[in-house]
Structures are given as C-alpha cells and as structure tokens.
C-alpha cells in the first residue's frame, strides 16, 4: 500500500518535471529561430477563429442568466437598476476569463492532446525528428503562441457578448431602461477590474495549451492511449484553469487593489 502511494507520488513528480521541461523548451524556442510561420498562422486561425462560436454562445448565455438571477436578488433590495454593475464586474473580472478558459480547455486542450497523441502513436513525431525537425518548434510553439495571444482576445469578446446578453434580459425582461443599464455598466467598472480580466487569460491560455501538448506528446499505447490522453488533457487543464485563476486573482488583488 505504502509502495503504491510512493509510486504514485514519484509518477506525479515525474509528470510535473516533464511538463516543466517541455514548457521551458517551448519558451526558449519562442525566442530563437527557426520559426514555422505557416503553422503559427494556421494555429491562430484554428484556436482563435475556430473557438469563436463556442465562446460567443457561452458568453451570451452566461451574461443573460446572470441578469436573470441577479435581477431577482436585486429586486429584494429595490436595486434592480444596478443589474448592469453586477454583470460587468462579474463578467469582466471572473466569469469571462474562467468560462472562456474552460471552454478552450474542452475544445483546444482535447484537440491538441488528440492530434499530438495520434502523431506519437503512429510514429509521426519520430518521423519529424528523423527529418531534422524539432517537434517543440514545429508543433508546440505555434499552439503556444496562438493560445497565449488568442485567449485574451476571445475573453474580451466573451465579456462583450455577455454584457450584451445581460442587456437583452435587463431591458426586455427586467424592464430596466437601456441608458440606466449602460451607465451602470460603466459606473461598476474600475480600471483594476479591466486589467485583472485582461491579464488572467494570458496565463490561462498558456496553461491550457502546454498541458494539452505535454499530455499529447506523452501518449502511449495506441488508440486507447490517445483517448486516455484526450480525457486527461481536458480534466487537467480544466482543474488548472480554476486553480490558476484562484492564485492569480489572489496575487492581482494584492498587487493592484
């Protein structure tokens, strides 16, 4: 029993070590040539444009349901007109980054792990190395850059449509005047909130992509291994999104407020 626990701890530490080694190698490759520009553009499109639909839908309905729920609560205090203030603060500081992160963990984390895992088990990664290409530069760096830069963009879009969803509910269901809603949105928003909502997605994008790449590149055991890698990537990156969000929020509150 003790042996099994120590084996599990050892295995866990080895995984973390391998993840850190890969991430450091990827970061080093970001700043040194050669670059595979075609792959970088392709990944910006796949991760950025490709994730737009899921982010738009998630953001819109989150803003709408937030308006519905906060409307009921605010009614108890006769403060329905403050609904915009609550939506902007919640969406921009917390829900926008985290929900976008979770959606991306599901969509691109799984996609990366499945794609790279399939390449590992069919020897395509070894074929790349045999042909003189570093898989970190060719496969990880383009995904890392796309995840790092597109997650904040997608988060801002999610925030925007979330506020729009809230506006629709506030105006047509809660009967709050449109001008009051928008004034309340601006009144409730502080510069620190905007920075927090903008800084967090960079880290979340990095975490989602690097976990997907690490899990995919470590896949073993044929198609079953690829399936396992895909599941592990989604679980690990989703948990990491929530955990990193907590620690980052704590850090940013200390630094900015």
């Amino acid at each position: 029993m003790t042996g099994r626990v120590s084996d599990a701890i050892k295995h866990g530490l080895q995984e973390v070590q391998a993840y850190v080694v890969m991430s450091v190698a990827a970061l080093r490759a970001v700043f040194t040539p050669p670059y595979y520009r075609h792959d970088i553009v392709e990944q910006f499109e796949a991760i950025g444009i490709g994730s737009l639909t899921v982010v738009l839908l998630t953001g819109f309905f989150t803003g709408a349901v937030l308006a519905l729920n906060t409307g009921i609560t605010l009614d108890q205090f006769g403060a329905r007109s403050f609904v915009g203030r609550l939506i902007s603060a919640s969406m921009i500081k917390e829900l926008g980054p985290v929900l976008t992160g979770l959606m991306l963990a599901g969509r691109i984390g799984s996609g990366i792990a499945a794609e790279l895992g399939s390449m590992v088990v069919t020897d395509q990664i070894n074929a790349l190395r045999a042909l003189g290409t570093d898989p970190i530069r060719k496969l990880v760096v383009p995904r890392l850059l796309a995840g790092f830069f597109m997650t904040p963009v997608l988060t801002v879009i999610s925030d925007g449509v979330g506020i729009l969803g809230g506006w629709i509910i506030a105006v047509f269901q809660l009967r709050v005047a449109s001008s009051i809603y928008w004034t309340s949105i601006i009144d409730g928003l502080y510069m620190e909130d905007a920075w927090m909502g903008l800084i967090k997605p960079f880290f979340l994008g990095f975490i989602i992509v690097t976990i997907g790449c690490h899990v995919g590149l470590s896949a073993k055991g044929g198609t079953q291994g690829v399936g396992r890698a895909t599941t592990n990537a989604v679980v690990a990156s989703s948990v990491a999104v929530i955990a990193v969000d907590f620690f980052l929020t704590r850090l940013l509150i200390t630094l900015m407020y």
């Binding site: 399939s118 069919t122 020897d123 395509q124 070894n126 074929a127 045999a130």
Partner: peptide, 11 residues
Amino acid sequence: GMVFQEGALFD
C-alpha cells in the same frame, strides 16, 4: 533517411 513501419506519413 528512415522508412518507418507503416510509413508514418503526415496525415
């Protein structure tokens, strides 16, 4: 040059 089992062509 290496010819892998099953080819290992890029899909």
